[in-house]
Design a binder for these strands. Structure first.
Length: 121
DNA sequence: TTTCTCACA
DNA sequence: TGTGAGAA
């Protein structure tokens, strides 16, 4: 699984210990078994990580996702979960706005360096 | 090659 | 928030 998603073995196990990942059981010898949903989860985790979300935040979002995907949820609870998901959308959009602003700074900086370089010829 | 645990940053 | 090392 670590190889599939491009994480170290230690990291994948650490995420399990941190409650972000559930194994689909073990072999008789104790080896971890992973299902396809583990790939999904790890992709979400990787993206959130790169955006600077904490493990706790990942846990939070993943649990909402899980519950929403489970069956037999009362409509009222469903509404709550949808609402929670919307707050995550907002948080992600905030990250996006911050990064865009940073990209703008980087762009200006590079342009400035180019003009410096050109002038110094 | 895996697992777990303890230490370390 | 991870990683390294040792032992089983």
């Amino acid at each position: 699984m670590a190889e599939r998603v491009g994480l170290s073995l230690r990291t994948v196990r650490y995420y399990e210990e941190a409650g972000l990942l559930t194994t689909a059981g073990r072999t008789p010898g104790g080896f971890r078994l992973y299902g396809d949903e583990s790939v999904d989860r790890l992709m979400v985790i990787k993206k959130m990580k790169s955006l600077g979300f904490t493990l706790e935040e990942m846990r939070s979002l993943l649990s909402v996702r899980d519950e929403l995907a489970s069956s037999g949820i009362p409509d009222e609870r469903r509404g709550e979960l949808r609402e929670l998901l919307r707050t995550w959308v907002v948080l992600a959009e905030e990250k996006l706005a911050t990064l865009r602003a940073q990209a703008g700074v980087a762009e200006d900086f590079v342009i400035g360096l180019h003009t410096d370089a050109d002038r110094s010829v």
